[in-house]
């Protein structure tokens, strides 16, 4: 969905997010930025219907209006402050799961526009659940797909594909950046730890204001409590307490919802 938001589009950088409210009774929910165009004054968001708020957003038609659209929020990815020489010398692998492919795209695109080529893995349950593969293909050095059922690309989990690339296909990475479901990022972090590869995870914690005011998004990073909205959303994945983060993500799911919930992206 492309949203007209000139100020947000002008200020946005890779790694940042927006807070959206669909209508007056609606919740404020954080959504990742899938693309932005300062000249056009627009920002692209990608949402998967998983609850009331995302259903409302996905029900909108072209020409409709989102009641509130605030951002860009969070710190941009660390790499935007690195020198081009430093970045070119680095082999970066992005590991995206499900709609996590959306925020990875502006990161890879930003690097590509500066002559820095990165590899990308997009994982999903099946071919139908894969998103942004064409866009990604145009900016990534190598794009690898992984699906649980093998309907596209590698059959298996993204972590298995990572091992395959490193162990059997001679790929070597200096840094991994992962965006996707918490459980996937947890296992990506465990995998890269074994290889000793620096890893950044972009967390999708619960938020209300998104500006540091409420603390709903607190996470434990190496034993310190930080706020995802202002200190993140990107953190050193090897320091994140993913079990706590996952538990906190479910805080407002009722018992019933928890029982009924079946992960729609196959995790």
């Amino acid at each position: 969905m492309e949203v007209e938001a000139p100020r947000v589009a002008r200020a946005a950088l890779p790694g940042q997010f927006v807070i959206v409210r669909a209508d007056e009774p609606g919740e404020r929910i954080p959504l990742t930025i899938a693309d932005y165009d300062a000249a056009k004054g627009s920002v692209v968001i990608v949402t998967q219907t998983i609850g009331v708020s995302t259903r409302k957003i996905n029900a909108l038609e072209p020409g409709d209006t989102l009641l509130d659209f605030a951002g860009p929020l969070g710190r941009p990815s660390d790499f935007v402050t690195e020198t081009q020489g430093g970045l070119c010398a680095k082999r970066i692998l992005f590991v995206a799961g499900g709609v996590g492919a959306a925020p990875v795209y502006p990161q890879v695109k930003w690097l590509h526009e500066r002559g820095v080529e990165a590899d990308v893995i997009i994982g999903a349950k099946n071919r139908e659940m894969l998103i942004m593969t064409d866009e990604m293909q145009s900016v990534a050095r190598n794009l690898y797909l992984a699906t649980d059922d093998g309907s596209a690309g590698f059959r298996g989990l993204v972590t298995e594909l990572m091992k395959e690339l490193i162990d059997n296909r001679g790929q070597r990475y200096d840094e991994v950046i992962t965006v996707g479901p918490m459980i996937m990022m947890k296992f990506v972090a465990l995998t890269t730890k074994a290889y000793g590869v620096k890893t950044i995870a972009s967390l999708n914690s619960l938020m209300v204001d998104g500006t540091g005011m409420c603390g709903a998004c607190r996470v434990s990073i190496g034993g310190r409590t930080l706020f995802t909205c202002v200190d993140g959303p990107e953190f050193d994945a090897h320091l994140v307490d993913f079990d706590e983060a996952m538990r906190r993500q479910g805080m407002y799911k009722t018992q019933e919802e928890r029982a009924l919930h079946k992960c729609k992206i196959g995790l």
Binding site: V208, M213, C214, G215, R218, T225, R247, M251
Partner: peptide
């Protein structure tokens, strides 16, 4: 910006700032 006490268990589900 809300303050927390820094005591054990503060990140348990159900512990929130007055601001939130």
């Amino acid at each position: 910006l809300p303050k927390f006490m820094g005591i054990a268990g503060e990140n348990l589900n159900g512990v929130i700032s007055a601001n939130e």
